[in-house]
C-alpha cells in the first residue's frame, strides 16, 4: 500500500464528507432526521485501516464537525474516536468483503456514536439531549446511515486504495 496515497485519500474523504454533512444533507432530512455521513466515513476508514487509524480519523472528523455545532467542542470527537477504535478492533477479527458489511457497520457505528454522544452530552449538562426525540432520532439516523454507507464505503475504498487483505500476492 502507498502510505502517501492513503493519507491524501483520507484527507480528501474527510473534506468531502464534511462538506456533505454541513452543506448538502441539512437540505435532505427525512422525518426531520439527517444522516451522519461523517460517522459512516469513520466506520469505513476504521474497517479498512484498523483501530488506531480509525480512532485518529474519528477524532479529527469529530473536532471539525463540532466547530459547526452548538455542543462543546470535543463531544463528537470523543464519540467518533471511541467508535472508530471499536470498529477497527472488531474489523480485524470478522471483516469480509460482502456488500452488506458497509450498511451494517455504518448503521451500527451510527447507533453507537449517537448513544455515546447523547450520554456524554447529558453528563456534560447538555440537558436538551435528554428528550424522547433522541431515542427516535438515533435509530432513524442509523437506517439513513446504513443507506448512505452503500456510497461511502466504495468511495473510501477508491480514495484509500486496496486494503492489505485485498492485495494480490504479487502486489503484497
Amino acid at each position: 500500500m502507498n502510505p502517501v496515497r492513503r493519507r491524501v485519500g483520507a484527507v480528501t474523504l474527510l473534506i468531502v464528507t464534511l462538506l456533505a454533512q454541513s452543506s448538502f444533507f441539512p437540505h435532505f432530512r427525512f422525518f426531520g432526521v439527517m444522516p451522519d455521513v461523517l460517522i459512516v466515513a469513520v466506520a469505513a476508514v476504521a474497517a479498512r485501516e484498523g483501530a488506531e487509524v480509525g480512532a485518529t480519523f474519528g477524532f479529527t472528523a469529530g473536532v471539525l464537525i463540532d466547530l459547526f455545532l452548538e455542543v462543546p467542542l470535543g463531544l463528537s470527537a470523543l464519540s467518533y474516536a471511541v467508535v472508530g477504535y471499536g470498529v477497527g478492533t472488531l474489523h480485524t477479527g470478522i471483516m469480509r468483503s460482502t456488500w452488506w458489511i458497509g450498511p451494517l457497520l455504518g448503521g451500527t457505528a451510527s447507533i453507537a456514536a449517537g448513544s455515546l454522544f447523547v450520554l456524554v452530552g447529558i453528563i456534560l449538562g447538555q440537558d436538551h439531549l435528554l428528550s424522547l426525540r433522541s431515542f427516535t432520532v438515533i435509530p432513524t439516523r442509523a437506517i439513513y446511515d446504513g443507506v448512505v454507507a452503500l456510497l461511502v464505503f466504495p468511495l473510501t475504498a477508491q480514495l484509500l486504495g486496496p486494503a492489505e487483505d485485498e492485495l494480490s500476492p504479487y502486489e503484497a
Binding site: 462543546p72 470535543g74 470523543l78 474516536a81 471511541v82
Partner: peptide
Amino acid sequence: LVLLVLTSITLV
C-alpha cells in the same frame, strides 16, 4: 485511544 479521549475531554 486514551490520548484522543483525554484530548477530547480537555477541549470540552
